[in-house]
Design a binder for these strands. Structure first.
Lengths: 332, 332
DNA sequence: TTGTAAGCGTTATCAT
DNA sequence: ATGATAACGCTTACAA
């Protein structure tokens, strides 16, 4: 591959001049023309590795998410991508698979590659990885989940509000024994969604009943098992609020297997949009997060953080919306 | 951030020795110990940018796919990721959005960043981008789609066979007027799936009827429009084979809107697995590709290509499987 | 086994 | 405005 020296030689100028043409310094139009021609003729592309070493910065972001296959994250990644490419960054997608060790590996790579910044949806409730980024001076933005005792920008959905409207909706539909399947207690999202559920019940003058709550793992089999356990429990629920999309699938599978009708036997509201929520019969009521928007906002926060490393951390909370569909509506 | 010189100074050895410790050269255990301690104390991480410049190779792959939100690709990406990280590579995910210009941009980035290799699911039927990678000596593996006149490794599903078994199944179920919604004629996948459809009809002793074939765009609205056009056409189909997952959604939406029952009025088989195929009523019969496996195989091909740039290009075809569900089965 | 020094391809400083 | 050259942080001959 051609280097800047090859271009300089062909254009009969110095490498400094070539560099100026490439980076917009002031140079005589005649020389500039010669350089441009030589660049084209040699199909020269500046070596970004060398440029990065010299300038001490790269155009790469690491986006570390816990599950590439979850539509929630793919949508978010698109939001990030769009901002990134508009700002001249490329996105390195890292799939931590809810595995703390993998997450640590990717953080190491981001640091070793001297990436310009990191967007992280933590797979761990511990702050260690974020702190090692922060102490290395690498800009970080947290997305989806927040971490105790971490000073970093964060972009979150309004989980408590979302869970609140979902539960309130079930109350209003006349369901009596409303259960909740949430995620691991250590995660802010799981805790906040549970707390919104509790708040809505309290507001309706009902006592919280812990035998109607299950802590699962945010995955499909976890949701399935939690629903089974609820159905086999002392107090059989007539409705359930499920705290994420994957677990909602598990819950629905369980209900199908048991030949229980939705919403006749059990009403269902799920957190997170499902791409096929409208296609399933019954259609599924969901609490939608603005996922693409979350990605965009996080990316914009990262851009700001890179430009101004010492600004106060920001915490952006985005509203959620209830999409009422068939699974939660008592027709008759 | 600490450099190799800081480590050398602290360990009281030369930078060469530090480098040897880091890269597994032979060095006196006593010195090695001092180096290891200094590395830990300084929290030293080798600068991969500098290493890349010096060694003239990076540990980055570009994976350029046409739609991050299509579950087909996210599954594939996981297969790629798993191999990549086992081999010490990181994956830069690029979403070309079926846009030829975006694809070109990402190819440029891959070249400029001197990435170790590229896995590409082409968003264009033209060979230009692959050729510019090839002429720059950048290892490329094509996945999902193949391109005319391109000498590169390719990993594909057996599209013709998949379409064949799908169509044959519809014939066996007693459907009379079996339509086909395929993708743009220029894409190998669309052509091969159409050809499998034709072959199965011929084999069943039926004449191909072009009024039952539609070329759409592999997207949901395209599938929807194609189904409408079929229903409004001269010969109303009683079954349809749809050549990808997104278009299958469009087709199903159309049938729902028209209040046609599946499979009573129209039988449906879709190409590509749908994560919710089991959850919809009726459940959807699909031709599944081994998507994760395709990613793995493509990644392994890239590893080989990087090690041996001059080997003959390989073409791997992976089998598909028919998952018979309710949408194609005539019960009574 | 260890150290010295050249060089990877840029950009930026400093003369001119 | 232009050019010579040092420097970015590493690996790797080559010498000792």
């Amino acid at each position: 591959m051609a280097t800047i020296y090859d271009v300089a030689r062909r254009a009969e100028v110095s490498v400094a001049t070539v560099s100026r043409v490439l980076n917009g310094g002031s140079v005589d139009p005649v020389l500039a023309e010669r350089v441009t021609k030589a660049v084209a003729a040699l199909r020269y592309r500046p070596n970004l590795v060398a440029r990065s070493l010299r300038t001490q910065r790269t155009r790469l972001w690491a986006v570390i998410i816990s599950d590439v296959r979850n539509p929630f994250f793919t949508d978010m990644v698109r939001g990030i991508e769009d901002v990134a490419s508009a700002e001249g960054y490329s996105v390195v997608l890292c799939n931590s698979d809810e595995d703390e060790a993998k997450e640590a590996d990717y953080v190491d790579v981001a640091l070793a590659e001297r990436m310009a910044g990191v967007i992280l949806s933590p797979s761990s409730y511990r702050a260690a990885h974020v702190n090692s980024l922060a102490s290395a001076g690498c800009p970080v933005v947290l997305v989806d989940r927040e971490l105790d005792g971490v000073r970093a920008d964060a972009v979150l959905a309004d989980n408590e509000q979302g869970a609140h409207i979902a539960t309130k909706h079930l109350v209003e539909q006349g369901f009596e024994r409303i259960a909740c399947v949430t995620g691991p207690r250590e995660y802010s999202t799981a805790a906040q969604r549970l707390s919104g559920y509790h708040a809505a019940l309290t507001e309706a003058g009902r006592d919280a009943d812990e035998s109607l709550v299950r802590f699962a793992d945010f995955r499909e089999p976890g949701g399935h098992a939690a629903m089974q356990s609820l159905l086999d429990g002392p107090k059989r629920p007539d409705a359930v609020f499920v705290a994420n999309n994957l677990m909602t699938i598990g819950v629905l599978r369980c209900l199908t297997e048991r030949r229980l009708s939705v919403p006749g036997d059990v009403g269902v509201v799920g957190f997170d949009e499902l791409p096929w929520a409208e296609l399933v019969r019954p259609t599924i009521t969901t609490v939608g997060q603005p996922t693409y928007e979350e990605g965009r906002v996080a990316a914009e926060a990262l851009v700001r953080r890179i430009k101004n490393p010492n600004a106060e951390p920001t915490r952006t909370v985005l509203p959620t919306h209830l999409h009422v569909r068939e699974s939660s509506v008592r027709g008759r």
